[in-house]
Design a protein around this nucleic acid. Structure first.
Lengths: 204, 204
DNA sequence: GTCTATAGCCAGATAGAC
DNA sequence: GTCTATCTGGCTATAGAC
């Protein structure tokens, strides 16, 4: 991919690095490939970002800060659990279809280096599900929801929304769908997943 | 880890390679580390497996063949959907607690090289959800289940069971649990997950 | 079968001209 | 700021002695 002249070099590098790191991972990525993709040479990467490690961290923090507001909404806004589930599912799946490598990139690199999440948490919003858990307990007591554990519900919501994108090659193999069929399945999930969750937890 | 003399060298190498590849991935793994872990030297790795690529493939196929029977059960045995969900959830989570790096390893390496699943499928049981989908349709028509799409249900079952292990560092960060707390959450899921699914799909 | 030593290559990083 | 050329180290793989 050639450099587009209307962006400055630093942004150009970050964009190229994002593409290479998110598809190849830290260990599989090559500085040469990033340089080629940015339309510059290796020396420039070091001029702007000093080392591969620091360039990687810039990409990672950037990716994480894209995801954080999505998650924050379900944890901390004012709507009911049912509304949160519906909005999050629809918004998140729409978002990931636009950034398909993002969840796998985050998960993979956190598994490679779990301490990384500590560094991130310092200078961004705290990841905290306490408020969400309190709200679940409240709605259970009010008879809106069946008896439900807040932390398990949170894990279930994450799992149902994120997993299919992370395990895309497996899903495609099992369902025998091509790229187009996979896309269709994911579009369906924008509403299917919230129905599935609400059906399970709502008091009828 | 020193070599235990009651195993032959080839098995010893495979065991060491499994540990290193499953934690570091293909790109992050080092032949030297595998040799050290097996208590031998690098030359022996090449003597038995010729190249890093072939050693990796041996490990991958081995891991996949451990997982296949687990999945086959839910796809092809004779029990009802409800029984399948309950048995699979309990058995699968028990299995993964014993092999915690396995799902992430499979998913990560399939994302790195999606064609890999084709090679595997040739000489193992076909991954096919057709029978499962037919059974779902049947139980829906019999009034046992609410209207449910078989392929989406299958994705949901996979997601709820596998995701927490793949995204372990994220889950720990959000729930603020340590290793022990995480283990407890997973133990709970052996029954919580099947309740969650059954609640959602069973006709009442 | 198992070892030591080393070939050969490739990647990250830097020096230095412009 | 941007380039070419090069250093340096680490990695896979092999040669060859025992």
């Amino acid at each position: 991919m050639a450099r587009t002249k209307d962006k400055n070099t630093e942004e150009q590098i970050l964009e190229a690095a994002k593409n290479v790191f998110q598809t190849k991972g830290m260990d599989g990525a090559r500085m040469q490939e990033i340089a080629d993709s940015a339309g510059i040479n290796k020396a420039m990467l070091h001029y702007y970002y000093r080392s591969k490690q620091l360039l990687f961290e810039a990409v990672f923090k950037n990716a994480f800060s894209l995801l954080a507001p999505q998650l924050n909404k379900i944890l901390n806004d004012a709507s009911s659990i049912e509304e949160k589930v519906r909005n999050f599912t629809s918004n998140y799946i729409t978002f990931i279809i636009k950034h398909p490598y993002l969840p796998n990139f985050i998960i993979q690199e956190l598994n490679r280096n779990p301490d990384f999440i500590l560094k991130i948490q310092e200078n961004s919003t705290l990841l905290n599900i306490e408020k969400f858990k309190t709200q679940v307990t409240l709605e259970v007591n009010q008879g809106i929801l069946k008896p439900t554990k807040g932390d398990q519900l949170f894990i279930n919501i994450m799992a149902l929304n994120i997993f299919p994108f992370v395990a895309k090659p497996l899903i495609k193999a099992f369902t025998k769908e091509d790229e187009k069929g996979f896309k269709t399945l994911m579009e369906q999930r924008k509403t299917e997943v919230s129905e599935f969750i609400i059906n399970s937890i709502k008091q009828h």
